[in-house]
């Protein structure tokens, strides 16, 4: 007696294999869509902007005339803003992560802090702009200065840095901590001399990626009223300034076609910046990350 009709199975198997193959191809093509989008985007921006990219473009201030427009004020302004965002967000982010991973006991309050960080990560950046406008620009009377923008951006990327730091602190094996306690070290000594040094590559990688988000973020800057036409370089933290995304936003909005090319050139400069920061992050990750 035959339980299995071999011919029928083979016949059905063939069609199933064809469907399998077909969908594999469809899925692959769908995956290529992302690749294609990225390719077109890069091609468009480079082909449009590269003609306007020159030393003059880097050294000129903004201008009404596209051929004279430059990104100097915005480039320097972005760097000044990063000089505020980097230390503020890293100190706050790493401090919070150490507290949550090493000190926080299981309590309602600490659970609330954790949940709150997750929620904060989902708040749109434009809402952070409203916070910055009310608290830093108006209530603390910082005006639309580097400091106000820097603080706003720091709070915006804080959840990302906290989560990245928590993960790298958690990845430090407990044996290292126990060995340190065994040698008579106190809790803080263990954290400062054992846990942090081995977690620092991960923290830096996450931190740099978060900073590269802050450098490209536009909406909060628009809301706190960062001006675009700036014909001077900032000289202290309370100076007015402009930033690269703001400048690109302004150029992109202008009706003259030439400004599209100027905007593309600005985007190239911004993307080179991001690329550099990301490469540094990757190098740190590959070079210093220890595996236990």
């Amino acid at each position: 007696m035959r339980y299995i009709d071999h011919a029928a199975v083979v016949k059905r198997m063939n069609s199933r294999m064809i469907v399998n193959k077909l969908f594999k191809t469809i899925f692959f093509l769908a995956t290529l869509f992302a690749l294609l989008a990225l390719g077109i985007l890069f091609y468009r921006i480079i082909s449009q902007g590269v003609g306007y990219l020159s030393l003059d473009f880097l050294l000129n201030f903004g201008s009404r005339f596209p051929e004279k427009a430059g990104i100097k004020a915005a480039l320097v302004g972005s760097l000044w803003m990063m000089a505020v965002v980097a230390p503020v967000s890293l100190i706050l982010g790493v401090g919070s992560a150490i507290y949550l991973e090493e000190y926080a006991k299981k309590s309602k309050l600490n659970d609330f802090i954790r949940m709150n960080i997750a929620n904060l990560a989902g708040v749109p950046s434009v809402v952070f702009g409203l916070l910055g406008l009310t608290i830093f620009v108006r209530a603390l009377a910082l005006g639309n200065s580097i400091l106000a923008a820097g603080f706003t951006m720091s709070l915006l990327i804080l959840p990302v840095i906290i989560v990245a730091s928590q993960e790298s602190i958690r990845a430090v094996p407990n044996e290292l901590r126990e060995a340190s306690y065994g040698m008579g070290a106190t809790k803080w000594q263990t954290i400062a001399k054992v846990v942090l040094p081995s977690a620092i590559p991960g923290i830096l990688t996450g931190g740099i990626l978060a900073l590269s988000r802050a450098i490209g973020e536009t909406a909060p800057l628009v809301v706190i009223g960062i001006p675009v036409i700036i014909q001077f370089l900032p000289n202290n933290l309370l100076s007015q300034f402009t930033a690269m995304p703001m400048q690109i936003f302004d150029w992109a909005k202008r009706p003259q076609e030439e400004f599209q090319y100027v905007a593309s050139a600005g985007i190239i400069v911004l993307m080179i910046f991001l690329l550099l920061m990301n490469s540094i992050a990757v190098i740190i990750r590959n070079k210093f990350q220890k595996r236990y």
Binding site: I40, L209, F249, L274, N278
Partner: peptide, 24 residues
């Protein structure tokens, strides 16, 4: 190959996407 492409795509500033939408 594909995962880094997705990461790059996720890291592009939205202002760049906006420009891409408007001009392309």
């Amino acid at each position: 190959v594909i995962k880094p492409v997705l990461e790059v795509l996720a890291g592009i500033p939205t202002i760049v996407y906006g420009f891409f939408a408007l001009t392309f």
